[in-house]
Design a protein around this nucleic acid. Sequence first.
RNA 1: GGCGCUGUAGCUCAGUUGGUUUAGAGCGCCGCCCUGUCACGGCGGAGGUCGUGGGUUCGAGCCCCAUCAGCGUCGCCA
Length: 583
Amino acid sequence: MTRRSCGALRAGDTGAAVELCGWVHRRRDHGGLIFVDLRDRDGLTQIVFNPQQDAFRNAERLRAEDVVRVQGTVRARPAGTENEKLATGSIELAVDSLEVLNRSLVPPFQINVDENVDEGLRLEYRYLDLRRPRMQRNLTIRHRIIKAMRDFFDSREFIEIETPLLIKGTPEGARDYLVPSRLYPGHFYALPQSPQILKQICMISGFGRYMQIARCLRDEDLRADRQPEFTQLDVEMSFSTQDEVLETMESCMRYVWKRVLERELPPFPHLRFAEVFERYGTDKPDLRFGLELVNVSDVFASTEFAVFKSAIEGGGTVVAVRYPGGAALSRRDFDTLTEHAKSVGAKGMVWISLGAEGIKSSAQRFVSEDDAREIAQRAGAERGDALLLFADARDAALAAAGKMRVEVARRSGLCRDDEFAFCWITEFPYLEIDAETGKPAPAHHPFTAPMEDEWDLVERDPLRMRAQHYDMVLNGYELGSGSIRIHKPERQRRIFEMLGMTQEEIEAQFGFFIRALEYGAPPHGGMALGIDRIAMLACGEENLHEVIAFPKTQTARDLMMDAPAPATEKQLRELHLRPQPRG
RNA sequence: GGCGCUGUAGCUCAGUUGGUUUAGAGCGCCGCCCUGUCACGGCGGAGGUCGUGGGUUCGAGCCCCAUCAGCGUCGCCA
């Protein structure tokens, strides 16, 4: 008598005496004959109870999600009763003995039906939600992805080093999660937003090639693709060029896709930041489809259309997006689309419809047929398509058009979840203007090295500096970013100074790190990729909830455990904390 | 913090312009019947403070205000 899984038995096992353990997925009680689909992580097996057996009486009382152990004999199903939908569908288990290991209450939602259940209910009863085939499959794929990553880096002689969770906050990033210190009143650990500094220190320590499947935490608002607690593939390499880091990470993804999804990935295209924003209105373009943005300001250079005229005279831009098949839309549809455009930041939207019975536009008086043809030609639009036009300051127009490009593609069915368009974005600006303060701030983190031949710009023209920084993008999602780091202490100091930090601030926040650089820090660089997002896309999902066992709600709560929860008076006393009323 | 969507039976949903007495359907649940089903089938049954609190009205599931929760999104996320 050997125990087998519920997905394992095949015709070749006929005659074998086996034991199965699992959950009652579904019971079909024919009165004189009872079928039960028994489920475990591996699949379903039909088990059969005959009234001649003692087990039959207990089988009549089985209900969904009861846990049982059964023993019996594998037999071929009678001819004509095989189930092609099941991997085990050619056999069944004739049960001799049944042991009910535990009963289940009637579940609040059905595990054996694939229907959309309220997200709050799923999360409150996550242990039941996780029993469903979709979540079992997704978490298994996630496991395989992580396993493949570890194997890949192991084969290249990286070693995994664990870095601590209780560390010191490094400001200028996202909001830190803080942990109060019991031993030092008023002092706090910060939970890592990433192991950035620690992995750089591992390079200084001579480990050469580091990787870690690292948990990271950021106390910012959530999105479908953003959780406060997430996992990243963290990598750092000494003596490596940017090209070597890119090759390593790209090879890793190619290996993962091959091993987990059995898919060959083509080489990832490289796009420069300046170019990608012009063409796609974003630094994380979805390259599963074309629909590149087209600058048509010159077409309207002498327009009397006030909206375009004022934008162009103010130094702005008119950007066009092609909408394949968009001529089929009604005016009402275009109105809805315009509202959507406004909600993603557009000032407004002008549409041109290239219908069979002629060209129509929401700005009919100001868009001549020749103009429409010219724009259509540049955007690659044909009869039956529509064109969407956005006028604003250059970056704003491009950004809005870029978001509408994705919306249009989505509506046109161009976003297939089984297509994977990776790319690299390179040559990012080193600084960007902070919208709030109006001051230059690092576009990424201050450990990033500028382009090697642009160090002289630090004093002369810092806004023109470009960074040795790179992003990996997949289907419009930023998977992660990396950079060649600064390894010379005096240069690191210069960057902090350029960012306006005083010597005291530098010492207090990063003194330990600059000191580390002073003891023979090797040149190094690396990258971090969001494993949750990778798993999400690999699974064809659109929300991180589907690939994280115990995710937080949009308001950062755990509905199953009901966290966060108030601390006891004693705990607060020990931590020297006194909660303030919300103000 | 802003905007939007959703909230009706255990689950998924329908519910017309504010007015069919008793708010419906499918699944699930409970009982009975059924020896080849696999979304088993047949018969019968139970199950609802319409998220919560106010308000408008002769009358509210439906309209208004507030609030809570879930989701999406903007801000934010070096």
